[in-house]
Amino acid sequence: MRIRLNINGKDYESDVEPRTLLVDFIRDVAGLKGTHIGCETGSCGACMVLLDGKPVKSCLMLAAQAEGKKIVTVEGLSEGGKLNAVQKSLSQKKALQCGFCAAGFSIMGTWILENEQDTDYERVKSDLAGVVCRCSGYEPIINAIVEAAKNERKD
């Protein structure tokens, strides 16, 4: 079937099987490789994208379900080669180790900054509950997002 998806403000159209998963459309049709496949069952969040501003796990959706919606992937968070506040903080604080989780934490972190009233340590810790990091024990990542939120508030 013909599917057209709007990803990072750009339309991608292709003839794909109805069973095509959203994550495969993003990676293989749109060629955006920053969204990863970690667990295939919604356990890990490596495939996280924003769908009409809401974080979703793109391995648990069919591409066809996303038609007519606005998708933002990790690549769409930075503008003109400039990282957004969460990404800058994760990078400066060297919070990530292996980096395979980069999409998950920056999508979730960005959503937190834009949607949460409170962005203290406990709130961020609980909001990140659907994204797995096997390297860091989470604390460096939580701190980086809390810090990014603080800096945003100052501005």
């Binding site: 930075s78 080669g81 980069a102």
Partner: peptide, 11 residues
């Protein structure tokens, strides 16, 4: 900054 991490953010 970690250029490696940046690379992942840029896909």
């Amino acid at each position: 900054m970690s250029e490696r991490t940046e690379k992942f953010f840029m896909g």
